[in-house]
Write a protein that binds this DNA or RNA. Structure first.
Ligand SMILES: NC(=O)c1ccc[n+]([C@@H]2O[C@H](COP(=O)([O-])OP(=O)(O)OC[C@H]3O[C@@H](n4cnc5c(N)ncnc54)[C@H](O)[C@@H]3O)[C@@H](O)[C@H]2O)c1
Ligand SMILES: NC(=O)c1ccc[n+]([C@@H]2O[C@H](COP(=O)([O-])OP(=O)(O)OC[C@H]3O[C@@H](n4cnc5c(N)ncnc54)[C@H](O)[C@@H]3O)[C@@H](O)[C@H]2O)c1
Lengths: 265, 265
DNA sequence: CCATCTTTGTGCACGCGTTCACAAAGACAT
DNA sequence: ATGTCTTTGTGAACGCGTGCACAAAGATGG
């Protein structure tokens, strides 16, 4: 997954496994599409195909929510939409703040997927005074000096960080101190937060690197076999680190083109 | 995780577990930061802290790559950077195309993290004729009619989809037919691809919903106990689906504010 | 050269997640 | 009412991932 929970030892909250929770939105999406086509019921097989998962897995997932199916028939689409929505907490409104209204933050602000399903952009926050008051996607940007006030007044509990990596931890600390307990982080940094705060990250760079790994495997396999072995031997004998790789050698920026986060130690 | 591999039954490629592969970029990032501070060596404990993982896990991860550490000392930073880069396939250049240059696509095009670490934006592609030729982040947008030609000429094997969900599958099919074997999908749809093609997805909406789930759990727990039970009873007795939830009821768009993907069946 | 101290590499156990396979449940027709 | 046929819900087995705990390796100091 492009994302992953951070912290908290994966204790299944109440009884629903974390892996199941992560799939519920997928089911919900497929179910919503069926609902719009006025399909009354759906079998686990069909729904599983639409969501791209195994049907047994889907049935087990639903079994954690309760017995909502009818044997011989399947699941009532509308009823399931309701149950999953309720389980995910989408029956209530979640005000969200976005911090860092640059390229990415602006795109997020204008994203339709935000507004639907109970997520409401409560505020856009940026440190740049030139941005203050300027409307982005119809919402005026507010200065980060007012961050605490905004969070408290609106009762915001979910924050999105789209600032440069270098300031992400500071921003995170301020959000948490102000009362935010869930953070979606787009900056390529490991955020450390106190217990009780959930952090999920979206990391484009990591996704690409994982794809590159598999791509290399697909491309090579036998043609890379000799070359790989040769490199292996060369570098293995030299205990000292080899010179930076030729093509792109020399000093360069971090793996993400961002300022590397300051390390704790 | 925010992301997740799709298809392919998680066979560990050659011997490196998928979970380990997903963490290598994290280690690489931390190591690069250390490298820039000219730190010569680092212990598993320190590096694990910087990457936000367990030190035993980190050591086990590295053990899959080989024995690159020195007992009593730790790991040579430069050497490890090189080994991980090589393992991830970052020593070569990966041309990438971005399809769908809207709000998100434009942000991605201008993202610094793309250019570094061997990923090069080979082309920006959009179906809107008005966009054609217009430079975005210094790169002229090309029309999607030329998609196949671009892919083949540049030998592109990684594609990024940032189009509306409704056309994502079509775009995906064209990319795959043209030779792309790795896809990073930002559209909220399940993509189906032939064997041998890797798909990873970044789904903002899913991340938010997972956060909302945990948020609800944190908020409620006992105050929601009665309310929840009441709702449970009411809906459980009525076998027929209940009316859409009051506050935000009525017909609405999909969970992502996008056109729901057309279902196969 | 030996002792001590640090840190790696990994054997092992445990728990979570996935999948198979099937009995039970219920719809539907006769 | 009874039988058939579809589909759910779940017991059980398996495999992967995680983390503990420790022996082996090697650096460092005397
Ligand atoms: N652009 C992308 O496609 C993309 C993709 C993946 C990740 N990211 C990451 O997302 C983050 C933002 O990317 P971007 O391209 O929008 O960068 P950007 O430079 O365009 O925007 C950053 C914004 O954050 C604001 N900012 C800086 N410090 C702040 C602070 N302390 N408090 C509040 N706001 C502050 C800046 O004023 C600026 O508007 C970066 O960490 C980047 O690595 C971006
Ligand atoms: N904006 C965000 O922050 C955000 C966040 C998460 C996910 N997404 C998803 O990313 C996708 C793009 O979002 P957006 O906000 O940039 O939308 P957008 O409407 O601004 O951009 C979509 C672009 O795709 C182009 N396009 C349409 N059909 C095409 C085709 N067949 N071939 C090539 N290009 C085509 C359009 O011309 C347009 O430029 C959507 O699926 C959205 O759900 C967006």
């Amino acid at each position: 997954m492009a994302t992953g929970r951070t912290h908290r030892p994966a204790t299944r909250s109440r009884g629903i496994p974390e892996a199941t929770v992560a799939r519920l939105p997928l089911y919900l999406r497929a179910l919503t599409a069926l609902s719009e086509r006025s399909v009354p019921t759906v079998s686990s097989e069909e729904l599983a195909a639409a969501a791209g998962v195994n049907s047994a897995k889907l049935r087990k997932d639903f079994s954690y929510l309760g017995s909502y199916g009818t044997r011989g028939v399947g699941y009532d689409v509308e009823y399931l939409v309701y149950q999953i929505s309720r389980e995910l907490g989408l029956t209530q409104d979640w005000p969200v703040v976005i911090v860092g209204i640059g390229n990415l933050g602006a795109a997020l602000a204008g994203y339709g997927g935000f507004a639907s399903r109970g997520f409401r952009v409560a505020a856009l926050i940026d440190a740049d005074p030139a941005m203050t008051g300027k409307p982005v996607a119809g919402i005026p940007v507010q200065h980060s000096d007012d961050l605490e006030k905004i969070i408290e007044e609106d009762g915001v509990s979910i924050g999105v960080i789209a600032t440069p990596a270098g300031v992400a931890q500071q921003v995170c600390d301020r959000l948490v101190a102000a009362g935010v307990t869930s953070i979606l982080n787009f900056a390529p940094t490991v955020l450390s937060v106190p217990d009780g705060v959930d952090v999920r990250k979206v990391d484009l760079s990591i996704e690409l690197q994982i794809l590159a790994f598999h791509e290399q495997r697909k491309a090579g396999e036998e043609s890379n076999a000799e070359a790989d072995a040769a490199v292996d031997e060369e570098t293995a004998t030299a205990v000292a680190p080899p010179a930076p790789r030729g093509a792109t050698g020399g000093s360069r920026k971090g793996p993400d083109g961002d300022v590397p986060a300051v390390m704790p130690a």
